[in-house]
């Protein structure tokens, strides 16, 4: 009897999301990379770096990795490690705020549009289609043209690109959930619309949204680096991985570490969020898992 009970207990007790995520290899790897990245970014935010990221040491220009400068120095004699750490802070800041804005705005638009439905929904989706008519990087460039360059403007550019994507991701599940009996039931007992949406509809759309958040973060990292690489994102002397990579052009032949470290940093960051997103999708939507 005890054995049956414990078995029953195991069957009904669903393991936590974290535990299920850790069980998938890609999810675990993604989680480890993301946690490391966030830790480094926090170090940069509180100022724990070997040197000041913008402090120049002219006599030590273009030095290779050494005991004094762990990852070498750049053209102005600035410590690469310190710049990489602060670069992580800047890129995470941009990615987090941009995704926070776009996921909130997008979810709101998608949910409300689908819940109201009819003509309103049709018009909203047509408006979203206009944004989808632009290749993402072009839309981001257009926003930068209007607002100018800089860290905070990059945030808005990324948010503008990603809001319609979140709207679409949120809309789908809401369309099917709002037909369900429990929503009809809630309506029939006189529940207010905002409460129905918040309590009954939204929780059912969370799974695809969580996955999308992780993928959006990886895309936001890429876009921040890309815009900065083009000189339109984070502005010097503030460090950004994209700026550092762009600065390495032309001198990477004599100082390859200028290119290798920021390049690796960008790749690992993007990979981390991508793997985490994949892991989350496998965990939250097991139907897709067998195809991977």
């Amino acid at each position: 009897m005890a054995a049956i009970n414990s078995e029953l207990g195991q069957m009904t007790k669903e393991p936590s999301l974290l535990r299920r995520l850790v069980r998938s290899r890609s999810g675990l790897l993604g989680l480890v990379i993301v946690v490391t990245y966030v830790t480094v970014a926090i170090l940069g935010a509180v100022g724990i770096t070997p040197y000041s990221p913008t402090e120049q040491h002219p006599p030590d220009r273009l030095q290779g990795p050494s005991a004094q400068y762990r990852l070498g120095t750049d053209l102005f004699g600035r410590d690469m490690l310190s710049r990489l750490i602060k670069g992580a802070t800047n890129s995470l800041y941009v990615a987090l705020v941009a995704v926070a804005i776009s996921s909130t705005a997008g979810t709101l638009i998608g949910t409300v549009s689908a819940y109201i439905g009819g003509r309103f929904d049709e018009i909203m989706m047509r408006v979203m289609d206009i944004f989808f008519a632009f290749p993402a990087i072009l839309l981001a460039l257009l926003v930068v043209t209007i607002l100018g360059r800089g860290l905070n403007k990059t945030i808005i550019a990324i948010a503008v690109v990603y809001t319609p994507i979140f709207a679409r991701v949120a809309r789908g599940p809401v369309l099917s959930v709002k037909q369900m009996e429990f929503v009809t039931a809630a309506r029939s007992i006189g529940m207010k619309h905002d409460r129905i949406v918040l309590r009954h509809v939204l929780p059912n759309t969370l799974a695809p949204l969580i996955v999308q958040v992780s993928l959006a973060l990886s895309w936001a990292l890429l876009t921040e680096a890309g815009l900065s690489f083009l000189g339109l994102g984070t502005q010097p002397p503030e460090p950004s991985w994209g700026v550092m990579l762009s600065d390495s052009q032309g001198i990477s032949e004599i100082a390859p570490w200028l290119m290798i470290y920021p390049g690796l940093a960008i790749m690992l960051g993007v990979l981390g969020f991508n793997l985490l997103g994949d892991g989350l999708r496998d965990t939250l939507d097991p139907r897709l898992k067998r195809l991977r």
């Binding site: 890309g226 762009s246 990477s252 390859p256 290119m259 390049g263 960008i266 690992l268 990979l271 991508n274």
Partner: peptide, 17 residues
């Protein structure tokens, strides 16, 4: 995995190098 994580400006810079 690499293709999804490595942006084209990184691949381009590496290739030129």
């Amino acid at each position: 995995l690499l293709g999804l994580a490595a942006p084209n400006f990184l691949i381009g810079t590496l290739l030129i190098y």
